[in-house]
Amino acid sequence: MMAPGAENRSREAAVETVTGYNFGYLDENTKRMIRRALLKAVAIPGHQVPFGSREMPLPYGWGTGGIQVTASIIGPGDRLKVIDQGADDTTNAVSIRRFFARVAGVGTTERTADATIVQTRHRIPETPLREGQVLVYQVPMPEPLFRLEPRVAETKRLHALADYSLMHVKLYEDIARTGHIATSYNYPVMVNGRYLMSPSPIPAFDNPKMHRMAALQLFGAGREKRIYAVPPYTEVRSLDFEDHPFVPIRADAACELCGSRESYLDEVVTDDRGGRMFVCSDTDYCTTRQGTQGSAREAAE
């Protein structure tokens, strides 16, 4: 079996830059508006800052918030990595990476360690992020309370009062009914002890990586027109109860390709008779491990 992504790791260097658009596609007024929102978001960790989200040439719901944030921070010296479901080669990640290669002419990479900006949908890379890196999340629904209270004016009031009883009651009812908290992704977190925040639909397995992360975390919700942020080394706690502490879960298996028992796994159906295999969702992590194992084997031979 071929390692996912191995063949196209360096294939994208030749994307042509488009002319007729400003660097990073957005006009300077729009960038300034987003930059101001970003600074306030960093200053108020976990608070959703409304912004004048623009129509982008990609559909709402397909990463327009993350794209606008990336477009407002990116410079010619950056190296951009884009992942969707943890993988660099899923179609939407390819499409967004090409967009930035065309409108900003920036270098792109699939290696987490080499990137200065990582734009993501639904995952946090397994390789710990470091200072000097920025993680940009694509967010579909920024409001953590939206399933419990759809009225935006009302949730704004609840955040102002730091009244998160709706969410506590919901989680408590889960436990009373089933013995477990039934939320497995988009698992709500408290940021710096003040704001309840949606971590975007990452699996709850990834939540602990947000806590005191060395990199800056920025969140963009284009359709809902909100930006929020978690500064480096900031406390991010998954909501739980003393007698029901938060437990991140993953499939109880090892990656078929690299053998990892630590990484988050995709379950792949291999036939119609119940056959399953598990592989890392983070393609860069998996490929890097396979490479190391390959060279270790060669050295031994």
Binding site: Q85, S184, Y185, Y264, D266, S281
Partner: peptide, 12 residues
């Protein structure tokens, strides 16, 4: 693709 979320739902 939503298979990462779906996987977490499967496990849950």
């Amino acid at each position: 693709p939503h298979y990462v979320d779906f996987q977490s739902e499967l496990e849950k």
